[in-house]
Write a protein that binds this DNA or RNA. Sequence first.
DNA 1: TTAGGGTTAG
Length: 649
Amino acid sequence: MVRASLPFLTASNPMLKFKCLRLSLHPHEAKNLFFSSSSAVAAVAPVVIESISQPQRIVSNLETRVPETRFFPISLDPRSFVAALVQCWNPTQVKQVHALAITTSMIENLGVANKLVYIYAQYRALADAHALFCRMKERDNVSWSVMVGGFAKIEDYENSLRIFREYIRSGSRVDNYTLPFALRVCRDTMSVQLGTEIHHLVYKAGLHSDLFVSAALVDMYARCGLVEDARKVFDKMSKRDMVSWTVMISGYAECGNPDESLVLFDKMMEEGIVPDKVTMVTVAFACAKLGAMHKAKMVHDYISRRNFSFDVILGTAMIDMYARCGSMDAAREIFDRMKEKNVITWSSMISAYGIHGHGRAALELFPQMLESGIRPNRITFVSILSACSHAGLVNEGRQFFHSMKRDYSIEPDLKHYTCMVDLLGRAGKLDEALELSNRMNLEKDEGFWGALLGACRIHGNVGLAEKAAKSLLELGPRNSGYYILLSNIYANAGRWEDVAKVRDLMSSRRLKKTPGWTWIEIDNTAYQFRVGDKSHPQSKEIYEMLKVLREKLELAGYVPDTNFVLHDVDEELKAEFLYTHSEKLAIAFGLIATADGTTIRIAKNLRVCGDCHTFTKLVSAIVQREIIVRDANRFHHFKEGCCSCGDYW
DNA sequence: TTAGGGTTAG
């Protein structure tokens, strides 16, 4: 058997190296054959690629320039080359094996060539992978899969799909490897149309019962926002493994239906599928979205029972979960217990303090993060700035904003400017917010104008509000929330005619106010209330409790703030309407259903209304309960008549 | 010789 090895072995005997290529070697000689891993090789590497068609020249180049060596025998058979590729430490070594494969014609072996393409793709060297792919005389599904997946890996979706289309056109038979790769690209590029076409291919090829293919289909539909289609595929699967389940659970959580995620998780357990860590991360994410404290604790218990370690991803997901379920203590405990923390972990913890209004605690973490050797990224600064905003820490916010670029070379983007406008705007510094806005050279989005409009609402600046609303209604004409916000601002200013105009505009565009709902968990059961809801079996008691509260509150001087009612009805009816807001119903139910002194936790899908905010403050004093409210923006901790948000929200 | 699901923002 002819055995060959790398032509560039030691600096001491160039002739010997050259011979190694063609001579059969004895075992004792083979052990002296080496790979080089020195930096000198890196300088040679481009020569290898440029000279692919002239192997002799490569050899001579390498021989004269490579000084040191690493063991590596290669014999002239495909398996040996593949084994060598697997053991390469860096792209330079891969290129050396590549050069050797060319000089020995081993490159003509499909397995060797495929492996090379794959390894280049692993190193994200897609130009090299593609150059080789183009030269290959023969290709199989592996070659195509690796190229499609390789381009997808470096997020070059255009090329990835181009190769996939070429593959389909080449008439090759699709298989259970190529399709999932392509479906993933559809998912990442939101190409539902192509995804649907591939779905047809799946049927044609009879691959619909393949676990990888169907999981990829479910994932594709769910991430493209077609969760119902995802569910159809999911329901049709004859058997499902943990990954498909996980994909479906995550799909629901992602598309704003975390409730269904948790239902599916229970179903998965019933069917005897054992979830792993990744599933639990997804479930924790769903709990976070939902704010389901009871479920959160169950998830935590399960993770402890299974002895899953809090690695950086699971730990971070749990921090977020507890924080969004309203328990900063539990979130912090996990944070402190985590051995490995990355920038996401720190940012999550900072953001958690932020949404709870603990601005100082959030800022204290920043220097600690630096000390532990973690550099902040742009999201860390969004977390920091929004924490300042929620807590009214104007000076601190300004300082962080300026230090971003100066100390960390992070150019503020629109999100950071939005936080600043929010921070300055809430604090009543609308002029400064506007000045910053004018200085900014970025295209403004809905979030930006929304922050400005929100600030106008707090400070009753109707003129600026109209400007912001104009832009908002252009950017998001279907978002009823903006109309409501503007109409509230007009209502606060007593401009009823304008209120009516906004309302007419809404109805002419056939927009309806997003229905508000409030959710409360009692004894492991979730109850949901809408405005004026009477569907609860204890409805009678709930309304009686509200009546009692109302009498007590009015004695304490509370006057319903009817500006928050959009309907054009008289004051008394407005007050009646306010009293049946979903927040109030949920709180009344919470008071009935739990023992004295128990903390009440509720979650609302929209932002808490001003009247409900005042109401809740007073109730917390009268009944001596802590009431924790999660709204669409942040947490409010009501205690003894005050709210942690300091009435900025 | 090729493969899947997971964490941070308002």
